[in-house]
């Protein structure tokens, strides 16, 4: 009987240790960043550069759709810095009083991703029958941008393109994968998404629409270290890295605040 109790106590201890280990997984002192999925390629380089000048700083980055991340933060997920792919998501958190400070970072352009040997050369080609087009869901930043673009086109063309849409994806990476897998002939994505992909090229949308502004938001309770990181990301030191990854500085587009 006593032995049974000891065993049970050991089991309970093991479970307790496992749960504690899983929940406390290394958040000690590291700067916790929630970043839009489209930053996956560029952010590590930016953070490396920042760490060179600030020894001992550590990061813990969680990537995801800006909306999911915002929702997680709303639900009480703990983070110091939120890098959103558009302003709406950050404003949503500001309304909840979760953001202490914000800074616009860079802009990203909408392009049409097609295969290198595709016959698609201009946006009008997407209105041809039998062309399969992938877009982001209207609720996602890239989808909202696409919707604005279509609305600015001649109505007949916009309708023909909409009729060719085979999917409205919840995430821009999935939209891009439709062309990579050959399931769609064209996909509306950000110009930066095409960096590092093989066998794809960008077709310009050829219309003037307001670009997408990336914004960094400092969460309440974040410490001074995080403020300087945000200043670094929005400052001139980071411009070269952003540009190499295909992002455009704010002043170049002229549209950003």
């Amino acid at each position: 009987m006593a032995r049974g109790r000891v065993r049970l106590a050991t089991l309970a201890l093991l479970v307790g240790v496992a749960v504690a280990a899983a929940s406390g997984c290394g958040s000690d002192g590291a700067v916790r960043i929630f970043a839009a999925s489209s930053l996956q390629e560029v952010l590590p380089e930016l953070l490396d550069r920042y760490a060179e000048a600030n020894e001992g700083v550590e990061f813990e980055v969680q990537y995801g759709g800006s909306q999911s991340l915002a929702a997680q933060l709303e639900l009480g997920a703990e983070a110091d810095l939120f890098l959103s792919a558009n302003e709406q998501q950050l404003e949503r958190l500001e309304e909840e009083g979760l953001i202490a400070r914000r800074a616009p970072l860079v802009v990203n352009r909408l392009v049409i991703a097609v295969e290198s040997d595709s016959s698609i050369a201009v946006i009008e080609d997407l209105g041809t029958s039998d062309v399969r087009v992938a877009v982001g869901a209207p609720a996602v930043p890239v989808g909202a941008l696409t919707e604005r673009l279509l609305a600015s086109l001649e109505a007949g063309l916009a309708d023909r393109i909409r009729a060719n849409v085979i999917t409205e994806d919840p995430n821009v990476r999935i939209t891009l994968s439709r062309v990579e897998l050959g399931e769609a002939d064209a996909a509306f994505v950000y110009s930066t998404d095409l960096r590092g992909t093989e066998g794809l090229r960008a077709v310009e949308v050829g219309a003037e629409i307001e670009p997408n502004v990336y914004v960094g938001g400092l969460l309440e309770d974040a410490d001074a270290e995080v403020t300087s990181l945000l200043e670094f990301l929005a400052g001139h030191e980071a411009v070269a890295i952003w540009s190499r990854a295909g992002f455009e500085p704010l002043n170049a587009s002229g549209g950003a605040r």
């Binding site: 909306q67 915002a70 929702a71 992938a134 869901a137 209207p138 609720a139 085979i166 994806d169 919840p170």
Partner: peptide, 24 residues
């Protein structure tokens, strides 16, 4: 894929709503 009326089932609609401004 996820196209309302054709391939967007309930779980996909929930995912889309989660990603939207209506959010959570």
């Amino acid at each position: 894929g996820s196209l309302p009326g054709r391939t967007q089932t309930m779980p996909l609609a929930i995912l889309s709503a989660f990603e939207s401004s209506a959010g959570l």
